[in-house]
């Protein structure tokens, strides 16, 4: 019996192996060690990716990744959720504010938040003057500005698909109640609204500006701050038009309810800012529609717009 695997192919090989067989009988331990060494040599010659450890290593790595994501998910709290009924109620409140309430608020005691610009008119996808908004879901100042934008734009057209969310809890004015434009649409015969929500509440990429939007954003807003609003290349606004602390500690329904009271700080802030935005849009639309643009609240804001 030979300790060497394989067939003897010639008499020379048999003769060569004969002393080895005798040696194996004389030194069984040494022979076994040599066999083991040969096995190790064969194993070390196989590519690393054929190793039996590869699949367990992949599974282990994936388990570590998922555990890491679970920990990250616990640290980043979820946005407070709203029921469909609550969403419908709040959206209805902010999109159907009576003209008399806007007029009673006027400028709301706010200083003009918009700056006139001199560029060729910005036209939207439907050929109307375009209102470009660039913001992000995490951003607390975008959160407050959206209330005014929605209130103002609802005087010119109709929103669909607005959802409630809050700003991030990891920044100033944490969890400011607001909406997201990410899945919304807007239709109007006077103005085109083009929103870009660049990041989610947890700062993941969401929507990207087109090259033209990016160029305009860089040109009119060199600091790169958000929210950025461009009303038809006639007026721009950077940041929120009113102090964020007005909304602190309030829920969506608290804010929605306060909008019906023109003397409440919430209504004066949101609707005062909305009147400035309304007046700016009216400048871009040539005063259309007249019932909105000739309203006392818009006229009062227009007087302070300049440009």
């Amino acid at each position: 019996m030979s300790a060497t695997p394989g067939r003897r192919r010639s008499g020379q090989a048999a003769a060569t192996n004969a002393p080895q067989a005798a040696n194996a009988q004389a030194h069984p331990d040494r022979t076994a060690r040599r066999a083991r060494d040969r096995g190790r040599g064969a194993r070390s010659r196989q590519p690393w990716w054929r190793g039996p450890w590869l699949i367990p290593a992949i599974v282990g790595l994936l388990v570590l990744v998922v555990v890491g994501l679970l920990i990250a998910g616990r640290q980043q709290s979820a946005a407070p959720s709203a029921s469909q009924a609550e969403t419908a109620q709040v959206v209805a409140a902010v999109t159907s504010i009576p003209a008399s309430t806007f007029d009673a608020v006027g400028s709301g005691g706010l200083t003009n938040p918009l700056k006139p610009v001199q560029l060729s008119p910005l036209t939207g996808p439907n050929g109307h003057p375009e209102v470009l908004y660039v913001g992000a879901e995490y951003c607390p100042y975008c959160a407050s500005e959206r209330w005014s934008l929605i209130a103002a734009l609802s005087r010119f057209g109709t929103f669909n698909g607005l959802q409630l969310t809050t700003s991030t809890d990891a920044d100033v004015y944490p969890n400011t109640p607001t909406f997201t434009f990410a899945k919304s649409s807007y239709s109007s015969q006077y103005v085109d609204f083009v929103p870009v929500e660049t990041e989610t509440r947890s700062r993941a990429p969401l929507q990207a500006m087109t090259p033209a939007q990016q160029q305009l954003f860089n040109q009119l807003n060199p600091s790169g701050s958000i929210p950025f609003t461009d009303v038809g290349n006639r007026y721009t606004g950077v940041g929120s038009g009113y102090p964020n602390d007005v909304l602190a500690g309030k829920s969506w329904t608290d804010i929605a309810a306060a909008l019906s009271n023109p003397s409440s700080p919430v209504a004066r802030a949101i609707l005062g800012n909305a009147n400035y935005i309304t007046a700016a849009i009216c400048q871009a639309t040539g005063g259309q529609p007249s019932e909105v643009c000739a309203a006392p609240g818009a006229v009062q804001a227009k007087a302070q717009l300049g440009g």
């Binding site: 998922v66 994501l69 679970l70 990250a72 998910g73 980043q76 979820a78 989610t200 947890s202 993941a204």
Partner: peptide, 10 residues
């Protein structure tokens, strides 16, 4: 997608 589920959407 697991990241989206665990971190973004909870």
């Amino acid at each position: 997608l697991v990241y989206v589920e665990l971190v973004q959407l909870h």
